[in-house]
Amino acid sequence: MLMNKKGMTSTVFNWVFVLIAGALIMLFFFRVINTQSQINENELTVTILKDMEDIIIGKQISTDSASEVKIANQNFEMECQEPCNELTGCDSWLGIKRAETRIELRTQPVFSIKKLTADKMYAFAAGWDVPFHTTNFLYLAVPGEKLIFPNDCNSDPLCNKVYTLIPQKLKAARIVIQGDYVGPTKYKKYIEFGVFSGDNTREREIVIDEPNKQIHFYEKGVFKKTEYYFLEEAIIGAVFTQDHQTYSCNMKKSFYKLRNMVKVLEGKRQYMEDYSPADPIFCKLHFQNIRPILSLFDTRYSSLNIPRIEELNNKKIELENENNELARGSCSSMY
């Protein structure tokens, strides 16, 4: 009986030993697998973010053709939201929500939809020259996104210009299309020039109101908000962006940059006004003429209205003329 009990204890102990040892071995391997998958995911994220950052910085520098970046179906998200302020820009980033590493975009205007999940992403940039170069607008899009221009786009000069400014690569990838797209897709937006379609089956629609330099945002046929645009690059921004909030957020960033540029150019102008050895009277006069024009560009996006936008467009032409005059008189150019 005693021997039997001892034998039982030993057997039970052996089983406990096997259980503990097995559990430890399994725990170890689970941990190895878990850590390894985390590392792999982090590595992938870092590699993708590196590529993305390379492209974003590259596009800030030069506006060449559209680039493609492989993002391995990671759940990329793009945020641009309030609060925005002149000191620190807007709360804006691009990255994977759960990953530690993100690309901060507090001051850089990047127009894209919020959820960028696909195997690859397209990126292109356009310079925002107002008329002096202020910043580059970066546009991102993923396959499955459908940005639909009207069939008769060629007959409207503004529509034609905006459509032509978008790189061919995005048209070939069927992201930017003319006519219509029937069937389910990740994100669909219709772009109309002039008049609202009135179609409430359209998930999203923007209407470009050229005479007032406004963009009207609609969702399921319901009017959401009107925003302003200054130059065609901003219209492309409205085409590629998620909604009116992200558009306005990015435009605020652009105008903060514009105000900084104006201050620097005003400093240069003041200096050049007193320092124009070629033809001092002629150069001085034109540098003086530039002063009130330049000061008009010292504006915030939130303070835009129809007369102000009109004025900005007129002053852009005046500034271009003044700059040409300076060149004609052998003075230094303003920009």
Partner: peptide, 9 residues
Amino acid sequence: PELECSNNN
């Protein structure tokens, strides 16, 4: 852009 060199853009 604040520092870049340009002549008529």
